[in-house]
Amino acid sequence: MIVPMEHLLVLATLLFVLGFSCVLVRRNLILILIGVEIMINAVGLVFIGAAALWQQVDGQIMVLLLMAITAAEVAIALALVVHLHQRKQSIDVGLFDEMRG
């Protein structure tokens, strides 16, 4: 036994909450995206832990798929960031409130 599952889950939770608070609090678009990456990483950690716990390779495959999706997401998101920056010369999310009701 390397470590109890509990501890791995605690680590993943803490990472997730860190990323989550980053998303909530930050106004810089890039930092918000970084927060999202952190949360995805924390999820991946749980997948890997679960794969090891049950000695099944599926969890690891999930992480791989997760990475691919993340890559796609980041590509689009960063393209949007560039686009938005072109429009307002800023990436403060507070400025992009044209959808305000």
């Binding site: 998303v23 909530l24 999310v93 992009f96 409130d97 044209e98 959808m99 009701g101």
Partner: peptide
């Protein structure tokens, strides 16, 4: 109610 939809991403979150 409209003020709830203030266009801020984090508020939607």
């Amino acid at each position: 109610l409209r003020t709830l939809a203030d266009g801020r991403v984090n508020h939607y979150l």
